[in-house]
Amino acid sequence: MTPHLEITDQPINVAAALAAVQTDAAGAVNAFIGTVRNQSGGRPVRRLHYESYDSMALTQLGHVVAQAYEKWPMLQEVAVVHRKGTLALGDVAVVVAVATPHRAESFAACQFIIDTLKQVVTIWKREEYEDGTEWVAAHP
């Protein structure tokens, strides 16, 4: 039940993340796959740069997953893989995969993990446009 948590500068292998949560105790595997979109607030995006404070990101990710295990004691396996570095349109930026006995908890736990990750995990996103770049969410 040790979660698979990873921050990588290599392309994410979604199948490997799904395999990491495989267990005979689970009847449901739920995955969220975040990908690079071609626009942000109507502004065309050319590519993204993710920067990570790795040691803290992994620490905080561990807290998030621990909270998920508290909220859903039936949660079996969890894998979270986040990409860093430069990503092209369509690239996979993050995968969250969870395995639970039944489907309702798998949807809920997966959503909780990705939503909370976005709030606390120390990863930053810089969007590159035709005419410049911007750190996402930095300013009010």
């Binding site: 975040g34 993710y50 990570s52 404070y53 040691s55 803290m56 990101a57 986040h82 930026a93 993050v94 990705i114 990750l117 976005k118 709030q119 606390v120 995990v121 120390t122 990863i123 930053w124 996103k125 750190w135 996402v136 969410a137 930095a138």
Partner: peptide, 12 residues
Amino acid sequence: DEIALIPPVAGG
């Protein structure tokens, strides 16, 4: 201590 400034995060 390992100290860092943490601006608004934007993972995912």
